[in-house]
Structure formats: C-alpha cells, structure tokens
C-alpha cells in the first residue's frame, strides 16, 4: 500500500494541477496569440486610369480591396483621396485618421480634412495641422504605371498602408 504524508500529498496534487494547467494553457495561449504571427495576404488591385485632378483639390474614389486577413477574402469598399500636388506628384491618401482610425471628411470651404470623431485636422496634403492626430494621414501603398495600349496612367493599390499607424 502506498503511504503518503499530508505534505507529500499536497505537493503531488499541486504538481498535478500545474501539469493540467500547462497542458491546457499551451494550446490556448498559442491559439490566442496566433494573429500576431499571421501574415496578411498581399493583393494588388488595379483601380483604373487616374482621373483628371486639379492641383490641391482632393478627389475621393472608392476602391474594392480585400483586407487579406484571417479567412476574409471578399473585397470591401474603401476610400482613397487622390491629391495632385503643385509639383505634379500624386498622393493616394487613405481616409483613416491617424488618431483613432475614424473616417476623415474633406471640408471644401476650409480646404482641410476633418476627423469627426475627435476633431483632428489635416491640410490638403494630409499633414496633421491640429487636434489629436499624432502623424499625417497614411497613404495607400500604390504604384502608377502607364498603360502600354492607351498611354493613360493606371493606378494600382495594395491592401496595405504605407506607414504603420
């Protein structure tokens, strides 16, 4: 017959409980942390020909971009503000405020982007000029290529922001 002291008994039970805890927590914690190690499926979307733009006049266009995360494959409607700078460069700004990621609106009278959530302000080039935003409006990762047939400038957008916010 097995003879146990009370102390030994408590020690063994404690060890057993710890073993159960470990066996349960390894898969659970691993499962919980898995999003940290998943990679976004990169997708390039051909948006189309770049529309005519007036200098410093943001023009919103709707993109269909899949988020590429988890099992999400359906493209979602997203906004890009196209801005032509005076030096000819084109900005493809997101409408995601760098403060709390709300949707910024363009105010044509003030010529500013305004975030309705907490009153962040950006100028037409997306620089944060007032309120809580800590950094400028992020841009979509994009490239502009001339169409070999028509010679138009075609805008391609990737499902990523070119600045981690």
């Amino acid at each position: 017959m097995l003879r146990l002291t009370r102390r030994r008994m408590v020690q063994l039970t404690g060890l057993g409980a710890a073993a159960i805890g470990l066996m349960l927590s390894i898969p659970a914690i691993g499962f919980l942390l898995s999003p940290l190690f998943q990679k976004t499926r990169e997708t390039w979307v051909r948006v189309g020909a770049l529309p005519d733009l007036t200098v410093d006049q943001p023009k919103p266009i709707t993109l269909k971009v899949p988020s590429g995360e988890a099992y999400d494959t359906t493209p979602v409607d997203r906004i890009a503000y196209l801005v032509r700078k005076s030096d000819g460069a084109t900005l493809v700004l997101t409408n995601t405020c760098s403060h709390m990621q709300c949707d910024v609106h363009f105010d044509p009278t003030l010529q500013q982007f305004l975030c309705p959530c907490h009153g962040g302000l950006y100028d037409v080039h997306g620089n944060n000029i007032g309120g809580p935003p800590p950094s400028p409006l992020p841009q979509w990762v994009h490239r502009l290529e001339p169409d070999p047939q028509t010679g138009q400038t075609i805008l391609f957008v990737k499902n990523a922001y070119d600045e981690s916010i």
Binding site: T40, S67, E69, A70
Partner: peptide, 9 residues
Amino acid sequence: RGGDFVGPI
C-alpha cells in the same frame, strides 16, 4: 482585431 484591421475575427 485578429489582424491589423477590423474584420470578421
């Protein structure tokens, strides 16, 4: 969020 963006997860 289960990723960088708000999604199904």
